[in-house]
């Protein structure tokens, strides 16, 4: 998005092109061409081109937008306060999850290290199956001699 630069004088054709696009107020014109345009604007040709562009500008200036109502301002600020607070809370939770994740990763790494260093440690836990109870195997396939009595 490079801007054209006008070194020195501007010709009438370029001045007219810019007036067609940007209107009669030179402050809206491309910054790099404003100095040359200001010089040309002092000429009769320049004045005529700006006068023509200024007619449309005068009409466009009649379109004004009313200032935002206090109700709209209040609604946006109220929503913003809630959103910003929620955003901070969300960041806090993500920080918590992050710390928990780091802790969990450390535990996993530690377990992996112990497994690698001492792989012969056998688990001595008892695997409960679906039929097991604290009284032993009392499921449907258990010894039914007592029930048969």
């Amino acid at each position: 998005m490079a801007e054209k630069t006008t070194k020195g004088l501007m010709d009438a054709a370029r001045f007219a092109v810019l007036a067609d696009a940007y209107g009669s107020a030179l402050h809206r014109w491309p910054q790099a061409e404003q100095a040359a345009a200001t010089l040309f604007a002092e000429t009769n040709q320049g004045r005529a081109i700006l006068r023509r562009a200024g007619r449309l500008d005068a009409v466009l200036d009649r379109h004004r937008v009313e200032a935002p109502s206090p109700a709209l301002y209040g609604a946006i600020v109220a929503r913003a306060t809630a959103d910003v607070r929620q955003g901070r809370r969300r960041r806090f939770w993500w920080l918590g999850f992050g710390l928990a994740g780091v802790g969990l990763a450390g535990a996993v790494a530690g377990l992996a290290l112990v497994t690698v260093v001492n792989p012969d440690i056998q688990s001595d836990h008892y695997v409960m199956d679906a039929n097991a109870t604290s009284f032993g195997d009392a499921g449907p396939d258990a010894d039914q001699t007592e029930e048969d009595l």
């Binding site: 935002p68 946006i76 929503r79 959103d83």
Partner: peptide
Amino acid sequence: AQETFVRIWR
């Protein structure tokens, strides 16, 4: 305008 500000906060 309201939706624009929601995006700004986000």
